[in-house]
Amino acid sequence: MVGLLLPAALGIFIGLALFFPYFRKLFFLKQEASNIPNGSMGWPFIGETIGFLMPHKSNSIGSFLDNHCSRYGRVFKSHLFGYPTIVSCDHELNTFILQNEGKLFQSSYPKPVLDILGKLSMMIVTGDLHKKLRNVAVGFISEFRLRPDLFCHLDKMSISVMKSFQQQRQVGFCKEAKKYTMSVMLKYVLDIEPEDPLAPQILEDFLTFMKGFVSIPLYFPGSPYAKAVKARARLTSTLGDIIKGKEESGAEIKKGDFLYEILRKGNINDEEKVSVAIDILLAGYETTAELLALVVYYIGKSPSVLDQLKEEHQALKRRKKDGEPLTLEDYKQMKFTSNVISESLRCGNLAKYFHRKALQDVEFKGL
């Protein structure tokens, strides 16, 4: 039943708001404006990036944010990824930022992050281009969830993965979850089966890509950042070849396929196709795998929750005929399972931060 968690996690993007300052020069004035939050700029260039990126448990905000919030408050200034930055751990301010997307704030990432994500990533582009690329992604995801074979395929794949665990004395579940979710995404985005030689190659490049995304942005041979930039280039080439090959093959393209959405829109070029494909794979693979790991982690600490999940799943199984595949309606009936997913998202932390740039001077609660 683990496979049933996937659709609920697609498109999930949560975390703490981290956005660029009103103007860089404000941080270097001898006498700062009174409404700039307190904080520390750290070392030149690197600033406090090393501390900010230190690994920590997913069910916490980490020692860096915890210490800075205790010292400066839940909104403070810092110097991250080579730029002066305002960091917000304040729920009300973060909500205000999201509600004013495109009016007072817009997505904006430091150049090192741009080099990894790519200039056409939906996390970066704005305006009409963002709307066009997002329409392709949303169209695919909407149709993807309604595919009649989806839940049956997820169920069979989940059972197969769980059976493989029986032969192992110890299982690194998060790693296995990433293999599982990548296999699912490759199957439904690019029609690549798990046994295809390209599958582990693409997974490895995504793992390298994500390690570099949360690393010090220093480009030198062998650094995680340099490896990530190269992995992004390989992914672009690999996915570009796959998409082009499938378009030229003349094979039947089914409704709900990624290529179906591309052709249906009609106004998307080759570079944009690859970028959207990478964004969809990333959204469906990384966050979903981490959500699965969080759910298992929390269930492991709550035997009563596990018992109630089993009861709900067994009740559903009893209502179905032998061999009858799972459906979207079955999933909708699993209220407690849905609550477990939502509570895991509330308690865990899938995305530590996201970047926003203030389009003008902004005052909030006197700051």
Results as ranks from 00 to 15, higher is better:
residue 2 V to D: 09
residue 4 L to P: 00
residue 7 P to D: 11
residue 8 A to G: 08
residue 15 G to W: 11
residue 22 Y to S: 08
residue 24 R to K: 12
residue 25 K to P: 05
residue 43 W to N: 03
residue 48 E to F: 00
residue 49 T to C: 07
residue 49 T to K: 03
residue 55 P to S: 07
residue 58 S to R: 15
residue 69 C to P: 02
residue 73 G to S: 07
residue 74 R to K: 13
residue 78 S to T: 09
residue 79 H to G: 03
residue 84 P to D: 02
residue 87 V to N: 00
residue 88 S to T: 02
residue 90 D to T: 01
residue 97 I to T: 02
residue 100 N to G: 01
residue 102 G to W: 04
residue 105 F to N: 02
residue 108 S to G: 04
residue 116 I to G: 00
residue 122 M to T: 15
residue 137 A to H: 06
residue 137 A to L: 11
residue 141 I to L: 14
residue 141 I to E: 03
residue 146 L to Q: 14
residue 156 K to L: 12
residue 156 K to C: 07
residue 158 S to E: 08
residue 160 S to I: 07
residue 161 V to Q: 06
residue 162 M to F: 13
residue 167 Q to H: 12
residue 173 F to M: 06
residue 174 C to P: 03
residue 177 A to R: 04
residue 178 K to F: 15
residue 184 V to Y: 03
residue 188 Y to E: 02
residue 190 L to H: 04
residue 191 D to A: 14
residue 191 D to P: 01
residue 194 P to F: 00
residue 195 E to H: 11
residue 195 E to P: 01
residue 201 Q to K: 14
residue 203 L to I: 09
residue 204 E to A: 13
residue 205 D to M: 09
residue 205 D to N: 13
residue 205 D to W: 10
residue 205 D to F: 07
residue 210 M to K: 03
residue 213 F to M: 14
residue 214 V to L: 08
residue 216 I to A: 08
residue 221 P to D: 06
residue 226 A to R: 12
residue 227 K to E: 12
residue 228 A to S: 15
residue 237 S to R: 13
residue 240 G to D: 12
residue 241 D to G: 07
residue 243 I to T: 07
residue 244 K to Q: 14
residue 245 G to E: 11
residue 255 K to P: 04
residue 256 G to T: 11
residue 264 R to N: 14
residue 265 K to P: 01
residue 266 G to Q: 10
residue 270 D to N: 13
residue 271 E to A: 13
residue 271 E to R: 10
residue 274 V to H: 05
residue 279 D to M: 07
residue 284 G to M: 07
residue 291 L to G: 01
residue 297 Y to R: 08
residue 298 Y to F: 15
residue 300 G to W: 13
residue 303 P to A: 10
residue 305 V to P: 02
residue 305 V to T: 12
residue 306 L to S: 13
residue 313 H to F: 15
residue 320 K to E: 11
residue 329 E to W: 01
residue 330 D to T: 08
residue 340 V to Q: 02
residue 343 E to I: 01
residue 343 E to T: 05
residue 343 E to C: 06
residue 345 L to P: 01
residue 347 C to K: 14
residue 352 K to L: 05
residue 355 H to E: 00
residue 357 K to D: 05
residue 358 A to P: 05
residue 360 Q to T: 13
residue 361 D to I: 08
